[in-house]
Each structure stands twice: as structure tokens, then as C-alpha cells.
Amino acid sequence: MNKVFKDAIEATADIKNGAIIMLGGFGLNGIPENCIAALVKHNVCELTCISNNAGVDDFGLGLLLQTKQIKKMISSYVGENALFEKQLLSGELEVDLVPQGTLATSIQMAAMGIPAYFTPAGYGTEIAIGKEVREFDGKMYLMEKAIHADFAIVKAWKGDKAGNLVFRKATRNFSTSMAKAGNITIAEVEHLVEPGEIDPDEVDVAGVYIHRIFQGSNYEKRIERRTTKI
């Protein structure tokens, strides 16, 4: 069993036009920078990207918007990206806006093998249109379905060659659920180590979920809003 790939170019080489891809991260926090750059290089098009946000104009998923490789975005908040707005208004880009908790849970349900579930988020709003509504204990809920993807691409702080991943601070965000939900999951890590170097007590995502792993490089880790103590 070998899960270790040389780099992002090799790990993403078989992603084809029209693929459905989940990309971990929240804003620019914990995004798979190396794989996004590789997708730009491979120039795969017509992608459906599932990601909480769409990056900013010149970083993160914004890079794939610049090159018009994305056909559809499934996100909860896309307000930081002017290019996105332009492509949306011109009809070049299709968008499904999903409440953030529903997006996270639909991905988690895919990871758990559960096809659908009920949540109160969005009841009585336009996102409820066409969805099954059910009452439990006097409260109204919408049926939401699990969200699956051909590929999940995440970035972790540390990973071992067996695929076990450890995340740092707030970078768990959507990444741990996506890592468990992909039909094929690709993990790029800041530190690739040997099996045994990660304490099993500390594993956030177990190796079974990870199909490909590689040592990432040149992380920019750009900060969207640099706020400091006044």
C-alpha cells in the first residue's frame, strides 16, 4: 500500500474535466494551496467546486475563477470576491448557496454514509423551496441530502505515510469532514512523517479516509483580515 505522491501535480493528475471536487478551508484559512495551483496548471475545466467560500480575486479558489475553470460553486458565503460577482451576473458561473451548518453537515453525512437528515436551518425561507418539510416535537425541519464528491482535497498540518492527519487550530473547519467524505481524498501536509511519529491519540482524521498524501511546499498562508490588539 502506497499513498505517498511526489507532489500536487502528480496527486491531481487524473482529475478530469467536469469533476466534482470538495476543497477544504474557511476563507483562506487552511486551504489546499498546492493542489489549487496544480489544478490551474492541469487546466481542468467545467469543475463543480464545493467549498464554504470562493477565495479572493487573486488567491485560493479565485485563481480557478480567473482561468474560468469552475462551472459551478456550492458555497455558503462568497462575498469577498469581485470576480465571482462578475461571472455570476454574466451567467458564466452557476452557484448554489447553502447555509453554512447545512453545508458542513451534508458533507459530514456523506462521510458517515447517511443519505439525508433534517435540519431547521432555512425553514420558511427561499432555500426551503422544493424540499420535504417535517415537524418533530412541534418544530419544523427541512430534509437535506448528503453532499458527495469525486475528490476531496484538504490541507493538514501534519500527516503520516499511512494517511493519518493532524490539524492545527481553526484549520479543521470544513477540512476534517471533507477529508472523510471524498470518493478519493487527497491530503497535502506541511509535515509528512513516518507511521509511528503521530500519536494515535492525536489523530483528527484516520488514515482509512486518505487515498493520497504528499509533502506540500511554499505555503503562503495568506491572511484575509489582519486584525491586531488596539
Binding site: 462575498g79 447555509p99 451548518g101 425561507t125
Partner: peptide, 9 residues
């Protein structure tokens, strides 16, 4: 449309 983020939840 910026999106609802976590507000609906």
C-alpha cells in the same frame, strides 16, 4: 448576493 453564511443555521 453574498450568501447567508451561518446566519440561517
Amino acid at each position: 448576493v453574498k450568501g447567508m453564511g451561518g446566519a440561517m443555521d
